[in-house]
Design a protein around this nucleic acid. Sequence first.
DNA 1: AGCGCGGCTTTTC
DNA 2: CGAAAAGCCGCGC
Length: 119
Amino acid sequence: MPIESSELARMVYALLATVPPGRVTTYGALARAAGVPKAARLIGAVMRGNPNAPKIPCHRVVKSDGSIGGYSGSAEENIRKKVRMLESEGVQVKDGKVQEFERVFFDEFRARPERRTEQ
DNA sequence: AGCGCGGCTTTTC
DNA sequence: CGAAAAGCCGCGC
């Protein structure tokens, strides 16, 4: 069973779907929200095998330091596409980095209420 | 089992 | 601030 069909992947997709336009999240944040804090790279693998590509906004996933990260194989053209998508949603990107990253960073995943001290 | 590789992260220098 | 080095998790060889 491929990773993209696993329960983890489904959760990741669900979590990612809760990220509103104009906001971004990170691989690590998704991993954390999905219950596997150390498996950030897995998220990338999940994205790569993304079955519902148009449905899942994998372009809203960036690296923890605000840099864009990869997209469909790290090809430069794909990255540019990702950036364009983000920009069209209102996320300012400059020199491969998300501007005001801490502001647009979205981590309020509600799918994991248990260990979060929010609200 | 062993090794290497990712759309990564964190620490250390 | 940039580069290097572990760690981490699944997959493929």
